[in-house]
């Protein structure tokens, strides 16, 4: 068995070992290569930046705990930007498994940094079942769909919610998601009520949404951890996503290298077989 045959039939445990090294090594020896801003990230940043003081933004936590490595940094940059600009925030989630808890934890943690008060500067509405009905219903009355917030406080007791009756009172919707719900924020909320929608989605979902950005139905797009890293750079606050960029870089390069090696091994093997025949 020659070298290329060995490469072609490499034990998968070697691949697993290389993956582990590629993920761990950059955290010990960071490279910190420059991150360039894509136009889609810039557009989302500019949209939030152009909102007047005391505007009201609906921020969604439409993701499961499984994708927090990609999605939570997006929620954090969104909260940083919104709180920094004194924008008031209403958080919702269409994900029952952990959505309300993650919204509660991340938002309160960030609010504490900026000295924001619950009920006045931000409110967490939590989860309600059947997202299509929830999204459409909030167009008529948010209180009809969410009579109480996530911790069962009636909306009438929260000063911020006295100003927010439906989408007419929301200036921007900042969706952070890892599933198909984004389609409905665009096709129901943006299309029917005209509220601008900007999104942060996992890298694997991002290619789909370029069509919506181009059509003007979506105002800016963050694609995966790289999108969050770009946003952190725009905010001037490098954090988790920027740290993760080295590991992601090395991982991408490893996969490209493996694919390349696999193909060379494959073609070398084919050539040898052809010679023998």
């Amino acid at each position: 068995m020659n070298f290329w045959n060995k490469i072609d039939t490499l034990d998968r445990r070697w691949v697993y070992l290389l993956v582990a090294i590629s993920v761990i090594l950059p955290f010990i020896l960071p490279v910190k290569l420059p991150v360039y801003i894509t136009p889609e990230t810039q557009q989302l940043y500019d949209a939030v930046e152009s909102l007047p003081d005391s505007s009201i933004v609906m921020l969604t936590f439409d993701y499961y705990p499984s994708t927090i490595a990609e999605t939570e940094p997006m929620s954090r940059v969104a909260l940083h930007h919104l709180f920094r600009k004194n924008i008031r925030i209403v958080t919702v989630t269409t994900v029952p498994l952990g959505g309300p808890s993650m919204a509660e934890q991340v938002t309160r943690e960030m609010a504490e940094q900026y000295g924001k008060v619950y009920g006045v500067d931000f409110v967490n509405l939590g989860y309600k079942a059947n997202y299509v009905a929830v999204l459409k219903g909030m167009g008529s009355s948010i209180e009809a769909i969410y009579p109480t917030d996530n911790l069962s406080t009636p909306l009438s007791e929260l000063p911020l919610m006295n100003e927010v009756k439906n989408y007419d009172d929301i200036d921007f919707i900042y969706v952070v998601a890892d599933n198909g719900i984004v389609d409905y924020w665009i096709s129901i909320v943006n299309a029917l009520y005209g509220t601008p929608v900007g999104c942060g989605v996992t890298a694997v979902m991002a290619p789909k949404f370029y069509a919506f950005v181009s059509a003007g139905q979506m105002t800016g797009l963050l694609g995966g951890m790289k999108g969050a890293a770009e946003y952190e750079l725009l905010l001037g606050q490098p954090a988790r996503a920027t740290t993760g960029m080295d590991a992601q870089s090395l991982m991408h390069l490893l996969i490209i290298g493996l694919v390349l090696m696999g193909n060379i091994g494959y073609f070398a093997g084919r050539r040898q077989k052809g010679k023998k025949a």
């Binding site: 420059p34 870089s249 996969i255 490209i256 193909n263």
Partner: peptide, 16 residues
Amino acid sequence: LLTATLVMLWRVPMGE
């Protein structure tokens, strides 16, 4: 394969 390689490089700082 070629498109995926280009996009994978483009999406990370080292590749970019």
